[in-house]
Amino acid sequence: METLITPGNDAWVAVLNLLLDGLLGLLLLWLAWRTLASADLFRAIVLFIAFGLVLAMIWARLDAADIALAEAAIGAGVTGALLLAALARLHPDRPGTQARPRGSDAS
């Protein structure tokens, strides 16, 4: 990386930081818009999962590792699975889903 260790290195880093942050910010806004505007609920869930990932990266860029960690744990571990399970429960009668009796008593 001899070519990068030059007097212009700081300028490079500044440009790259700007590009990275700008792209992350635009991506987050675009994902938020698509998630809300999507008529297909499943696609909205997938976009929401991607939204959580990009949000965690933005927290990381803001040097807020604590919040990035919380967003990663909640977003990847719980929310995606919760939304998918809720979607399956919303439409139990549609063909292609596992029939799950709604509100039936387990005990």
């Binding site: 008529a39 609920l41 499943f42 979607l87 399956a88 439409h91 139990p92």
Partner: peptide, 15 residues
């Protein structure tokens, strides 16, 4: 074939 295998494909006309 879009999403036919997934529940909750709410079409725009439902809105």
């Amino acid at each position: 074939t879009r999403s036919t295998s997934v529940p909750g494909t709410v079409r725009a006309r439902a809105l």
